[in-house]
Simulated assay, not measured.
Amino acid sequence: MTVRKLQQKRGWAFALGVAIVKPLLLLTTRRDWRGGENIPATGGFILVLNHISHLDPFMAAHIVYDHGRMPRYLAKSGLFKNKLLGFFLRSAGQIPVERLSKNAAGAYDAAVAAVRAGECVVVYPEGTITRDPAGWPMVGKSGAARIALETGCPVVPVGQWGAQALLAPYAKKPDLFPPKPIRMAVGAPIDLSDLAAQPRSAATIAQATDRIMTAIKGLVEDVRGEPAPAELFDPKKAGVNEIGNPHRKNIPGEDPT
């Protein structure tokens, strides 16, 4: 595994987060990382991953940080409602996004600006923890594809497995011991060059999104060592809520995230 030293200035918030979180991850996980050399050493890019646990951002930050980069996330806006947490997240360079809302355009603009400024922007194209009953990637949203087509930046796919054993989807308590194996495979950048030259139609964006999810699915197959379903799970077709805990009813006025 190739490990690079961080060249960027971390800032107080990111430095504090590393000091607290990294020792915990080293204690509670056993890492099997593959293809880390595909994470660009310099320049703006998007890292796209499948979403299986609320711990996923920590896993992504770990592998990105240990390969010399600092991640910026499109994080759900509900996390920013707490003044202290919101201050910390903004200080760490994270980007709030209001899912399923027209206000998500602001997050798109911020992500495009971050990529153009040479930063690593982490995106979970599914938009939420997968609803697939077996944990496979589900159909993706268009955000990552739109950012990539607008900027022409590399799109680096990652397939991961194991975080859900440490913290199951929507569980309240983690299962810390024994340490859980975390397998992450980083693929080569996805070629979208032919689509970047085309008009930004819904069909073009859908093609780009499909390529992104296909690449992620293939990497998840590698880390799981088994074939994925032929078709990605579609929560709309299955009648499953796209956000929030799918196993409980949302309370009126409550944030479903």
Score class of each variant (00 low, 15 high):
I52E: 01
F58H: 08
E126C: 04
E37M: 06
H67P: 05
K217S: 15
A107S: 15
A197L: 02
E98Y: 09
K249R: 13
R69N: 00
K217C: 14
P157Y: 03
L232K: 02
G44H: 06
I46E: 12
V139G: 05
K180C: 10
V186T: 07
V112F: 05
K249E: 15
P40G: 05
K83F: 14
R34C: 02
G86N: 09
G253P: 10
V3K: 10
A75I: 09
R10I: 12
D132I: 03
L149F: 05
L176D: 04
G162S: 09
L85G: 12
P199F: 14
Y124K: 02
V18D: 08
L27G: 06
F87V: 15
Q207P: 03
L149M: 12
A41F: 00
T204I: 07
A15P: 11
Y170R: 13
D222W: 04
M184W: 11
T257N: 06
V155R: 02
P23M: 01
A113W: 14
E254T: 06
K83W: 15
R224K: 05
A107P: 07
F58R: 04
N241P: 06
P229N: 07
D32L: 13
A13H: 13
V155D: 11
E254I: 04
A145H: 07
I129A: 02
L192A: 10
G17H: 10
